[in-house]
Design a protein around this nucleic acid. Structure first.
Lengths: 374, 374
DNA sequence: TTGAAAGCGCTAACAG
DNA sequence: CTGTTAGCGCTTTCAA
């Protein structure tokens, strides 16, 4: 217990309890060499069972704690990855982060969180990731990966995976925005709608652009002529434009275009957050959803359930887990070709599209009866 | 540029570009000793200006990146702190995390995020924090700090600060729940209400308990007799019970208690998340807020603005920043007495309490006129 | 002011 | 199977 690190002069240094037990202490106590101790620690096969027992016992007795950074320095692995992820957009990231977190925990990997509250922080975090031996790899989420950093990452061969964004030099995990939007709009078409608007985010941002493409494609496939007045979007900006306020504003705008609004019976809203705003705006305007306007949105954030949004679900949690997985693969196999994984979002039918109107009513009656029966 | 790490055999090792430049390389290039280089790096005072210039130039030229872990091993500081924070409760943590994140960034400290998705993960993260040299300190949020770990933290003198929770052995940063709740309820009383219910979370959890205390105190101070039927709370459970569903359920329960609901004109809802549920439930039941029942809640999460909740604002972002600050203080001064900082939440008046009814109406008219003027 | 040398605690050959 | 040795890249005395 009064273990003193080897080679340390015994001047005024007092070693407190279990603090600072090293493999030298273990080796001395167990009567073996530090190599053997190290092997036990890393359960290397070639250690005699009895020796191993002996060492393990000492480890326990001295309450040995390995020193993470010494290990990392010597082994040239950091066992740490980082996530550069925007905090300022919608709640998408939260679900993804849960997935990342859980998987990292299962794997015993440290996760350095680089939450971006302001776009200017991105470069800082990126530069920091580049420090030698700082992290084994980085995950970069939902933002455009700065072109100025691609060569830097390539030069030092730092593994990188992009999530919810894309670059042809790196691995990426995305959602099929175009296909998803198309499914959403087709759902509306199947429900009998022909006059379908789109309420979108910032078209500069990739997701918004792709979702618009899906919208157009669906209409074209069904021989519905595209009309510019049906396509609304948030103004340009640094962010994705998927905000509640934008939804609220755009539904008002849609309605204020008198001649058009008369004919519109449905809208594809490109994000749940905006859809919530649309719902609010509609209520204020006395417009009933889905009766006057049916709505399908995109994302399936947690709020979507409560707002009973019909929406396209992105497997966010899964994407988070996969991001970790993919990064680890990349760390193992540095020079494989960039791999891109893309999830097809899934239609979740709730109340805003009107498909469940009858079913819902029936369910409600059933529930009432059940209650009465109790 | 073809720098080769010292002491490495020149067999098949090819050193790529700027990867692996060490202080030895710098020293050789600059024609000085590694000690001097190190001093420049840490801008130690005793280096001749010219020498410093020379070294700095080489650093730039070779694109030197310091090795974080070597530094940490040698200096015995990790420059890393961790945050153990629940992901499963409400959005409180998100705001706090933003504060933590921003401050850590400003200070150049790495933040290891230990997001707890399931209560069982807490011990894992705690144990991990204990690894020697892993982190300089830890912040622990919103959960009961396990008694079994207090001695462990004390033994190895690992700096710890508790946020939104409390333990008398450690620093803590909290919110005055009781006082805040009291302010909330008194606001209702000042508005003329005498029959005020409370819709609360899990009473086992500290915040819920304290908020209940504040509620009682307010009523007592104003000679309003307490009535058990007015006090509702989520069932017991591991979590805090501050959920949307709980709010929805409890408002129904409140209303279903016929004789009482007739008299109740206001309710203090112990969390915004529940208040949102209450709003939903009320709408379904055809109860108008604030006309039939006025509501004040607690937290001021981001959603509260959109739902126009009158609520008690917790300075979450500030608390996050302070947590980092406090932890650093503690790291510097290990054996000061535990320090507890407590924030008084602030009443934010919006629509649900009814105080703004007239003002709101006036504002609405004003807005209309402005629009017409355009 | 500066260079040399001795660690920090651990891993990974290399002999035996 | 195991002890020894030489690093990993940096900080920090200690002389000079």
């Amino acid at each position: 217990m009064e273990a003193v690190p080897p080679g340390i002069s015994l001047t005024s240094t007092i070693v407190v309890s279990s603090m600072g037990v090293t493999i030298y202490d273990l080796a001395r106590e167990a009567g073996v060499g530090i190599g053997t101790v190290s092997r036990c620690l890393n359960n290397h096969p070639s250690v005699a069972p009895e020796t191993r027992q002996k060492v393990l016992a000492v480890i326990k007795r001295l309450n040995y704690q390995p020193h993470a950074y010494a290990h990392r320095l010597a082994s040239r692995k950091t066992n740490t990855i980082s996530a550069i992820i925007p905090f300022f957009t919608n709640y998408f990231f939260l679900e993804v982060l849960k997935g990342v977190q859980d998987r990292a925990l299962e794997l015993g990997i440290d996760l350095i969180l680089s939450g971006v509250n302001d776009p200017s922080q991105v470069e800082y975090y990126l530069r920091r990731s580049l420090l030698r031996g700082h992290v084994d790899g980085v995950m970069f989420f939902s933002m455009n990966f700065p072109e100025s950093f691609v060569s830097k990452f390539q030069e030092i061969a730092l593994p990188l995976v992009l999530v919810d964004t894309h670059h042809n030099k790196f691995d990426s995990i995305t959602v099929k925005n175009r296909e998803g939007a198309k499914i959403a709009v087709e759902h509306l078409i199947h429900l009998g709608h022909r006059s379908i608007a789109i309420i979108n985010g910032n078209l500069q941002a990739r997701p918004a652009g792709e979702r618009l493409a899906g919208y157009r494609e669906a209409l074209e496939d069904h021989d519905i002529p595209l009309r510019d007045e049906w396509m609304l979007s948030s103004g340009a900006g640094k962010l994705d434009g998927f905000t509640r306020e934008a939804g609220r504003t755009l539904i008002r705008e849609l309605i204020s275009r008198r001649r058009i609004s008369d004919t519109i019976t449905a809208a594809f809203v490109a994000s749940d957050v905006q859809a919530i705003g649309v719902l609010e705006g509609a209520r204020e305007l006395g417009i009933r959803i889905p009766d006057d306007i049916a709505i399908v949105s995109f994302d399936d954030i947690e709020l979507a359930q409560h707002a009973r949004l019909t929406t396209m679900r992105q497997p966010m949690y899964q994407m988070g887990r996969l991001a970790v997985e993919q990064l680890l693969d990349r760390i193992k196999e540095r020079d494989a070709a960039p791999r891109i994984t893309s999830f097809l979002p899934e239609l979740v039918i709730r109340s805003t599209c009107g498909a469940l109107r009858d079913g819902e009513a029936a369910a409600r009656i059933r529930r009432k009866k059940e209650l009465q029966a109790i």
